[in-house]
Design a protein around this nucleic acid. Structure first.
Length: 486
RNA sequence: GGCCCCUUGGUCAAGCGGUCUAAGACACCGCCCUUUCACGGCGGUAACAGGAGUUCGAGUCUCCUAGGGGUCACCA
């Protein structure tokens, strides 16, 4: 038990799951599972102004859908609860007061307005503002008096003016900073709530978190947290700071570009497993050439030594490739099931599923491409440019095409069975009998039925999908339009 | 601006002092396959940010410069 790894994912409920957050959750979860430890979910809602209704449910739903289960959390409980920060509100003040008694923290009555003014003044002088410990020097009697009078106050950490604060990061190594650089951060806000920084330290310790994994934006404030651990005489956790995911070299993935949230990609038709797989590889590598991982395989392979120090740019093209690969690797049953809603949307659900699967599975990169790629099946552009009948490689032009269609249409009308095999032997047989390349015969037929240069599948598959009546209707119509070019 | 972190091809990245005339993947280009387009197969273009050291030897260690990111809130 003493060596049991305990990690935590501590999101604030803002409504959506950011891709970067998702990856942090994933790594944190993987670390715990890989080491046979516990994964704890804690909701950090100390900022009441930012609370979003239903946001916690989004977090639960997302994590569950991916398969990241938690051992302790607001909904499942646990012996270190409560797991919602606002419900722990009363736990923090005593710790802060304890620090005050030890001289490691102090009451501060400076108002926000005063501070803002001083900050602005410092900025004007081109200086970095740092709280001057003004209230630290207030005599005890006055502090007591103002407290008794009910004056609003905050509690600040008393950072030594000299010396060094440091910590060891599992990825970045030893990070140290001069205490003179550190500001006396607020531990308890005027509303009695702890700041994120303070709550984090207290919660992580009281919840027995052994490995603190979080974004690297906390790298520079972590030495300050360690001062708190030292003051309390607590054992420090192992720190593992994780890189951020970027849109490009200088910007993080952002809400504005509609590329930041897990939900965005789901809506665009990406598979959750592909997203998770791709994201897992952004900032971590298994040390070999493997790229495809199930969650279980990730648990097995995950290791801090494979985590990178520099931020990674999110490459949609690679995600798309990976998603396409996931689609191609689906079994027939899986593909049919996943495709069904998209077939409905595209209006082709009544067509031959076997043929659809065969032409679409290797071609779709994301399911949302379905409607576009199959649009000609539901409705041919009857005004299509008849120049499409001309194709050099297939040796076709308007004249050849007219000839081919004149020959093919009656033969198709006479074909007893309208199935793939019959269509295939008829058309290929005709090409051979007439000494034509397959392409010379099939090109006009495909164009005549599709009215489009690029189609998934060829003439035979399209004919099967459209059925005899519609195929012939289109071919006759196209043949008639060809007259204009002769 | 102060402080902290980072820096291998367009992107993800392997590399942990010699086997680097630097792997693999995506993207891109070419060829093959072929009933268009894909899929698949084969091949190609493309990188150690720059400069000083240390060393017999540096992508790998040190320092400097440059570039990028983070942070400096009663936000998390």
């Amino acid at each position: 038990m003493a060596d049991m790894v305990r990690t935590r994912f501590a999101p604030s409920p803002t409504g959506y799951m950011h891709i970067g957050n998702l990856r942090s959750a994933l790594y944190t979860w993987l670390y715990a599972r890989h080491h046979g430890g516990k994964f704890i979910l804690r909701i950090e809602d100390t900022d009441r102004n930012r609370y979003v209704e239903g946001a916690t449910e989004v977090i639960y739903r997302t994590l569950k859908s991916i398969g990241m289960n938690w051992d302790e959390g607001p909904d499942v409980g646990g012996e270190f609860g409560p797991y919602v920060q606002s419900e722990r509100k009363d736990m923090y003040l005593p710790y802060a007061k304890q620090l005050v008694e030890m001289g490691k923290a102090y009451y501060c009555f400076c108002t926000n307005e005063e501070l803002d003014a001083r900050r602005a003044a410092a900025a004007e002088r081109g200086e970095t503002f740092k709280y001057d410990k003004h209230c630290l020097h207030m005599d005890k009697a006055e502090v007591e008096r103002r407290l008794a009078a009910g004056e609003p106050y905050v509690i600040r950490q008393n950072v030594p003016e000299h010396g060094e604060a440091s910590f060891d990061d599992a990825i970045y190594g030893h990070i140290k900073v001069d205490c003179a650089e550190l500001d006396d951060m607020i531990l308890i806000k005027a509303d009695g709530m702890p700041t994120y920084n303070f709550a984090n330290v207290i919660d992580d310790h009281t919840m027995g978190i052994t490995h603190v994994m979080r974004g690297m934006e906390y790298l520079s404030s972590t030495p300050k947290y360690n001062l708190l651990y030292d003051a309390f005489g607590w054992e420090k956790p192992v720190y593992i700071h994780m890189t951020s995911i970027m849109r490009d070299a200088q910007h993080k993935l952002s809400k504005r570009d509609g590329d930041a949230y897990f939900e965005d990609y789901l809506a665009k038709g990406y598979l959750k497993d592909a997203i998770v797989n791709y994201v897992a590889l952004l900032g971590w590598n298994p040390g070999d050439d493997r790229e495809f991982f199930t969650l279980d395989e990730l648990v097995d392979a995950f290791d801090v030594s494979g985590m990178s120090k520099s931020p990674a740019i999110f490459d949609v093209a690679k995600l798309t490739w990976m998603n396409a690969e996931y689609i191609r690797r689906m079994s027939a049953e899986e593909f049919d099931a996943a495709a069904e809603p998209w077939y409905e949307k595209a209006g082709i659900a009544h067509m031959d599923k076997g043929v659809l699967r065969r032409i679409l599975q290797p071609r779709l990169e994301i399911f949302s491409q379905m409607a576009d790629i199959t649009d000609f099946l539901t409705k041919m552009d009857e005004e299509f440019d008849i120049a499409l009948f001309t194709n050099k490689k297939s040796k076709t032009n308007a004249e050849v095409s007219a000839k081919v269609l004149d020959m093919v249409i009656p033969a198709l009308e006479a074909l007893p069975a309208w199935d793939e095999e019959s269509l295939h032997s008829l058309l290929i047989g005709m090409a051979e009998a007439n000494g034509m390349k397959n392409g010379t015969l099939l090109w006009p037929v495909r164009i005549g039925m599709a009215g489009k240069a690029v189609t998934p599948g060829g003439a035979i598959e399209i004919a099967v999908l459209l059925g005899r009546e519609e195929s012939l209707r289109r071919l006759k119509l196209s043949r008639a339009r060809l007259n204009a070019a002769l």
